[in-house]
Design a protein around this nucleic acid. Structure first.
Lengths: 240, 240
DNA sequence: TGTATTTTTGTTGTCGACATAAAATATGTG
DNA sequence: CACATATTTTATGTCGACAACAAAAATACA
């Protein structure tokens, strides 16, 4: 999952397909925001992006509007667009919503999962185990997100899935910001919790699924909070 | 709250302010979609809109991207944009999410409401009572939505508020579609439930607020479902 | 030297025109 | 007359240029 640098991802001679440009810009910028390649609060220049991607400002602009709709960038009218800052004062709102969505989606997954869902969930669980084994922290964060998103999809409620994915993405950004304080023990706790979660979903045990999801959410919230408290650079700017 | 027809809402001589155009188009089209002035599934022509609003296609396009982000319109690549159809097969997802958000937001409101919140909520409750008295159904539907949205705001969690407002808007569209089957009794039941809800929020009684919200949600879901079942034009096209 | 005012600069918001994709229509062939 | 193929139509996607706005820089003035 490498990031293409200065992505002129079309060969010199080939012409980019119609309607492909916005999607490419949107995906790339979204990844870079969640990656922290683009620091929270840093300005985004439309002209620079149009040069980088080799397309005009119009499609760049559309991608920005989409990103703004998801809260990933903030547009200052007539001035610039910045990468959405992390809203520390209101983190409790985030934690509250995140916990509820963990529970709701996991419950629904236990109720509605199909055999195909279970295969996909297990595959991601295995992938996560590998990342833990390899001590690849960025990979762990990403796969963890995909694991829970897949469970949400199995729950089969697009409103929950959509909100949850947004929350998971925001969480990914927070974890990235603080992954320095990751220790070896935590990932293994998560691994076990994931295992129990999958088992509960598999046998359709809604109450247990809910309980585990709840505990898991609290675990993660606690970890993020601890990381933030431990870090005294909270309000420092992220270096470019 | 009248809809301006063919809104060239700037006087002939005056120049529209920069950045005002997109907002105007967005607001107008959003209202017309929720109003059913624009029928679900009907195509939206960018050129026609640009003529109607007297601005070029670029800002129209941005408004469309925003609306698409909220699921109010659907873009068929290289073809057209249509008003989002009502997703009948998945209505249960909608009802489930709506019920949960009713409960969560009302609970939080009971926990977090300020005096100023209570004033705003009471004002909307009075407004609703007036609409019931006047038997003004469209007004009832709109004020009802704003009443619950205000409660959600008092709960002070932007993730819930945002999702809930989206769900309430979609619900408004459904109610509009079927308000023919409104009878005199239901609005009065809602009125009483609202009264109890406000009282519980006022005295910070979280459990009671939750219970009432739950009952209220079930009441509304039941009503919508009954309306749909009673209506055999479900799959008929809405006349333009 | 410090403050108010003008000019410059950089970046966004909007425009009109053109290129292109997909559907609708017309054309040709067995 | 059915069916495949070419052509036209229609609306979108993209472009390059210009205008307007807000901040920064330069200038005027007390």
């Amino acid at each position: 999952m490498s990031v293409e640098e200065y992505a002129p991802d079309h060969l010199p001679g080939t012409k980019r397909k119609r309607g492909k440009g916005v999607g490419a810009v949107y995906d790339t910028i979204k990844h870079e925001i969640l990656d922290l390649t683009l620091a929270p609060g840093s300005p985004i220049d439309e002209v620079r992006l149009s040069e980088r991607f080799g397309i005009s400002r119009t499609p760049i602009r559309e991608a920005m509007v989409k990103l703004a709709g998801e809260g990933l960038v903030v547009t200052l009218p007539n001035r610039f667009t910045i990468v959405a800052p992390i809203d520390f004062p209101n983190l409790s709102q985030f934690f509250d919503a995140l916990s509820l969505m963990y529970r709701v989606t996991t419950r629904l997954a236990a109720a509605n999962r199909t055999a195909a869902d279970l295969v996909r969930i297990r595959a991601l669980q295995d992938h996560y185990a590998e990342a833990v084994e390899a001590r690849d922290v960025p990979e762990m964060i990403e796969v963890n997100r995909n694991f829970h998103a897949e469970i949400a999809r199995a729950g089969n409620n697009r409103y929950y899935t959509e909100l949850f994915e947004r929350l998971l993405d925001e969480g990914r950004r927070l974890l990235r910001l603080y992954y320095s304080s990751y220790n070896d023990k935590l990932p293994r706790i998560y691994l076990q919790e994931h295992e129990d979660m999958v088992a509960a979903i598999e046998r359709g045990d809604i109450d247990t699924a809910d309980r585990i999801a709840h505990a898991h959410a609290q675990q993660i919230v606690k970890q993020i909070q601890a990381s933030i408290t431990a870090d005294h650079r909270v309000n420092a700017n992220i270096p470019l």
